[in-house]
Each structure stands twice: as C-alpha cells, then as structure tokens.
C-alpha cells in the first residue's frame, strides 16, 4: 500500500470513515504518522469544545468567587477546590461510572457514557475550574483606579463589567490562560485511558500511538510522532492566543504590554 492510499484509507479512521480494520503487521512509518494524526482530530475536538464552553463557565465561577455574597462565593470556591484538588484521571473514571449508573436508571443518559459527550463534560467542568482560578486572580488585580474611573463616568452594573472589568480581566489573565489552554489540549490524551471506551477503535492520538507501541514493542517511533504533533498543536495555540493577546493589549504603549510568558507545566 502506497502512502497516498494509506492517507486515503486511514486519515479519517478515528471518526469512522475509511478502512475499518487497523493495520496488524508490517507497520510502515506512513501508517503510524497517518493514524496518529487521525487521532489528533479527537484531541482537537475535545480541547476546542471544552475551551470554548469552559470559558463562559470560568467567567461565571470567577465572578461568583469574587462576589461578596456567600451564597455565590462558597459554591464557587467549592467547585474550584473540587476540580483543582483532585486528579483529572480520577474525575474521568468517576464521571464514567456515574454516567454508567445513571444510564441504568434513566435511558436519557445513554449518550453520556460515550467519550464524545461524557469526557467532554468532565473536561468542560475541569477547565472551567482551572480557568476560573486564573480569572479570579486577574479580577483581584484589576487596578482600582480603572474601576473608580468607571464609577466616575457613571458606568455601573452590566455596562461597567462589559466595558471595563471584563476586558481588563482578560488582558491580565491571558498569558496564564494560554498556558491553561495548552495544558487542556495535553490533558485530552487521558480520555481513552480512563474508562471511556474507544468505540470501534476510534481513539485519539495517544490511543493509536500506544496501539503501535504495544504491537511493535518499539516506543521510539510512535511516541516521537505523537510528540511532534503535539508540539505543532502547541505552537498553533501559542500563535492564536498571541494574536488575541495583541488585540487585548492594543491600547497600551508598547513597553506596558503584558508579555506572553509560557510556563508549560503539565499533568493535572
């Protein structure tokens, strides 16, 4: 099979399009690159969906934690503690078995035991908690002069939040939030190792990488391929978030802009 044919039959294998059977012997480099790349679809899907939905949850939770009302503050604090204080791996397992039990009782929960929804919910809540902590920190360090100025201009409530507090919060939180995004994409590799079954061997990049490593007893090919894909993905994230960072800081003189400092710190 030439490499072009391999791409045709395996590039969308992870979402069920193309050849049904995975290669079983005589693995070529091309097959490994294509299949692991095909798995990346899931990593991108999980990361992207969790990040976009989690962003709103995180904003809400951060505001809750910053609020003076204990009925809002306490639940937000507990939520953050619960998801930041326990391993994501265990959260996946717990959620999977919880959904499995619920499925037995209510048929409504049928799709929740599948990774595309169940794992996404866990990632959504998890990134919500981590990002909320980052946003909360930013909320605390908004210069008080800006809020006072907003008051002086007669802005209050929603319009003050929308025009003054929120943009500044994002601007201050953005470098840390970029790290969180990278972190989240890396965490998506845990999904298929934590209870959620890979239906018809449609797994993510690490699922295929470990498939090859198991079959060939040679970790020195599939894992570096996986690492290469993730380094590329990380660079793309850094690029995109850098653009947003530029936009958030566009009103500032060049020397006052917050620099993107990347501190890759993995595993949650």
């Amino acid at each position: 099979m030439s490499c072009l044919e391999t791409i045709q039959s395996y590039s969308l294998r992870s979402i069920g399009i193309g050849e049904r059977l995975l290669p079983r012997s005589d693995f070529t480099l091309c097959e490994q690159v294509v299949l692991i790349g095909s798995g990346m679809i899931w990593n991108v899907y999980f990361g992207l969906m969790a990040l976009t939905t989690g962003f709103f949850l995180a904003t809400a939770i951060a505001l809750g934690k910053g609020s003076a009302n204990p009925w809002l503050r306490k639940p937000a604090e507990w939520f953050i503690f619960l998801f930041r204080g326990s391993p994501l791996f265990i959260q996946f397992f717990f959620a999977y078995f919880l959904f499995l039990n619920l499925k037995g009782a209510y048929p409504f929960f049928d799709p929740f035991t599948a990774a595309w929804l169940g794992a996404l919910i866990v990632l959504f809540l998890n990134t919500g908690a981590y990002s909320a902590q980052i946003f909360y920190g930013a909320l605390q360090s908004i210069p008080k002069g800006e809020v006072e100025a907003a008051d002086a201009y007669g802005l209050s409530g929603w319009s003050r939040f929308r025009r003054i507090v929120w943009p500044t919060m994002l601007r201050l939180a953005w470098p840390a939030y970029t790290n969180e995004a990278i972190f989240l994409f890396h965490a998506t590799t845990l999904v298929y190792f934590s209870g959620f079954p890979a239906w018809q061997q449609r797994g993510d990049a690490l699922y295929y990488a470990s498939y090859f490593a198991d079959k060939t007893f040679n970790p020195f090919v599939p894992y570096p391929i996986l690492a290469g894909y993730f380094i590329l993905l990380t660079l793309v994230i850094i690029g995109l978030f850098g653009l947003v960072n530029r936009r958030l800081n566009r009103h500032l003189p060049a020397n006052a802009r917050s620099k993107m400092k990347l501190r890759l710190n993995l595993i949650r």
Binding site: L226, I231, L266
Partner: peptide
C-alpha cells in the same frame, strides 16, 4: 520534557527505560 503531553512520557519512558 516540557511541551509534550505528560502521559505520553509516562508510557514512553517505561518501555524505553526497560529496553
């Protein structure tokens, strides 16, 4: 070690060290 997913390293190093 920074910049590559964590568990990829765990899976990789165990076989690599053993071999």
């Amino acid at each position: 070690v920074r910049g590559v997913p964590d568990i990829a390293f765990f899976l990789f190093f165990v076989i690599a060290l053993d071999q």
